[in-house]
């Protein structure tokens, strides 16, 4: 799932650098969620997760990129979103996904909370090598 499923719609790519880009990311994901016909609650969950991850990209990753598309996998339809940055990375992934863990600026709900709001969640990172988070929300 770290790569887009074959047969998905074209991927949109947008820079996530300033805090205004978090708003832009939300709008793009909202549009894709509507296109894929996610329910209103699932749209809200996905957009919220994207908002958390986009903010992480700006605040902790020092800026990066969001790639997103309507995903199609056999009969399944959903939204695929990936955030990539070249920041300091996360030394301990297990710990970073624990509720309440925070590097100090937030409440520690961003990563762990975002994971609960989506159907698929993949976090890859290493100290000094940046971070890539990929999520998918499928239409039920």
């Amino acid at each position: 799932m770290t790569s887009v499923p074959v047969g998905s719609d074209p991927v949109q790519e947008v820079g996530i650098v300033a805090s205004g880009d978090v708003v832009k990311a939300r709008q793009i994901i909202r549009t894709l969620a509507q296109q894929s016909r996610l329910s209103l609650v699932d749209q809200t969950k996905l957009v919220t997760a994207a908002s958390e991850l986009a903010r992480n990209t700006v605040v902790y990753g020092g800026g990066g990129t969001m790639r997103a598309c309507v995903a199609r996998d056999g009969a399944k339809v959903g939204v695929w979103v990936q955030f990539t940055d070249q920041g300091q990375g996360i030394p301990d992934l297990e710990l970073a996904l624990t509720d309440g863990w925070s590097s100090g600026k937030g409440m520690g709900l961003g990563l762990s909370g975002a994971r609960r709001l989506v159907d698929e969640f993949d976090l890859r990172s290493a100290a000094g090598e940046g971070t890539t988070v990929t999520v998918v929300k499928w239409v039920r």
Binding site: V41, Q43, G113
Partner: peptide
Amino acid sequence: MRPAVAMTLVELGL
């Protein structure tokens, strides 16, 4: 608060 927002907030842990 919209219902969908309330459901999302609780799942988020807030």
